[in-house]
Amino acid sequence: MNIFRFAGDMTHLASVLVLLLKIHTIKSCAGISLKTQELYALVFATRYLDLFTDYISLYNTLMKLIFLGSSFSIVWYIRYHKIVRRSYDKDQDTFRHYFLVLPCLLLALLINEKFTFREVMWTFSLYLEAVAILPQLVLLQRTRNIDNLTGQYVFLLGAYRALYILNWIYRYFTEPHYVHWITWISGLVQTLLYADFFYYYFQSWKNNVKLELPA
């Protein structure tokens, strides 16, 4: 495992921890899109079907369990926790799941490396992960007041994706036959979705003002 891959995983882990910190300690999920969180839970549930059939490493298994466990518990908190759910911006978080889920499922059925159940599910999870952040970005734009933890959460998620691209470039040059077009293109699309957010994030950081996305 190279440094970019490891740093990417750690950034991903940090983003989840920041979100859990906000929900668990401050008992607030203001500005967090439940739609995005539900899509991530679906992403991990469909991607990690190999958890009990293929063993890669202890690190791999542990991380998979962490991402599965954290994504489902975040959804649980926002939906059912009696204090946390009060801060959920339900009226603003109106993105429709199936606008993203159905096209991704169709695309995975059409474009995949192998037409087996697990491989199609894996591919579906890649496509869905690429667009799962959209409800969250829409919500950020509607929320005039983006708190620090929410901004950091989205920033860390974007950084994780950018580091994965560096990881693929590194692996391409160091490993024989390392070519994964589906993973790369969906990963690139996913990272590009953060470009706008990154721009405003760095602007607010440079000028030391509160993060706000233009309508």
Binding site: R5, D9, H12, D50, D54, I56, S57, N60, M63, K64, F67, E113, K114, E119, W122, Y164, N167, H177, T183
Partner: peptide, 10 residues
Amino acid sequence: LEQPHMHDEL
């Protein structure tokens, strides 16, 4: 020869 499809990334 077909490459084994290793899902070693997260």
